[in-house]
């Protein structure tokens, strides 16, 4: 089964600053659960000017203490993050996906960053950046998993946490939920 979720928002910063902030976003005081980020590959295409990056993020799983005690191996999990910056067209496309639990449920978040264009004269105001966010949830497990995801959705917390694009948090919620069910 596959589910999609879509959202739009914008930052009050110019596009170049936002793309730089994307690469610098860890560590920050609001994401203390992200323990490490490593660059696996980085490539500049000299003909198109596009910069492609693949990074691996290691985060601490926020499992309830009672559960984590029995499953010490699943205290940490990995997120794969790919990005492509197109300097000529002023576009950055990013993708994050979970690596753990991937066979059970896969959550893929895509973001497209572009400079905001004013609706009046179709020119960039230069100070804002639009973001289009798409989340795709798929599972091979079938209807069983679908019901469980629906449970999570009806609780509100899971979906609410997606609105600002914090995919890591969402994945944690799912991971935590699956963990509870596994016991």
């Amino acid at each position: 089964m596959v589910k999609f979720y879509e959202n739009y928002f914008s930052y009050d910063f110019a596009w170049p600053a936002v793309t730089l902030a994307y690469f610098l976003r860890y560590p920050n005081p609001y994401s203390s659960h992200v323990l490490a980020s490593d660059t696996l590959s980085r490539h500049l295409d000299p003909t198109t000017g596009k910069l492609t990056t693949v990074r691996l993020l290691l985060k601490r799983g926020k499992l309830p203490a009672a559960v984590a005690r029995f499953l010490p191996k699943i205290k940490e999990s990995y997120i794969l993050e790919s990005s492509e910056v197109d300097i000529r067209n002023q576009t950055m496309v990013t993708e994050t996906r979970n690596l753990d639990w991937e066979g059970v449920i896969s959550v893929v978040e895509n973001q497209v960053y572009t400079p905001s264009y004013s609706s009046h004269n179709n020119s960039s105001d230069g100070e804002k950046t639009d973001v289009k966010l798409t989340v795709k949830i798929s599972s091979r497990v079938g209807s069983n998993a679908r019901e469980k995801v629906a449970d999570a959705a009806s609780s509100g917390g899971l979906w609410a946490s997606w609105t600002t694009g914090s995919i890591q948090k969402s994945i944690e919620v799912i991971g935590m939920k699956r963990m509870r069910e596994g016991l």
Partner: peptide, 16 residues
């Protein structure tokens, strides 16, 4: 990387 990205790439001056 950050130096190269902000001083060259973002200004469209990065060749390598």
């Amino acid at each position: 990387f950050i130096k190269w990205y902000s001083e060259k790439y973002l200004r469209g001056e990065a060749k390598t």
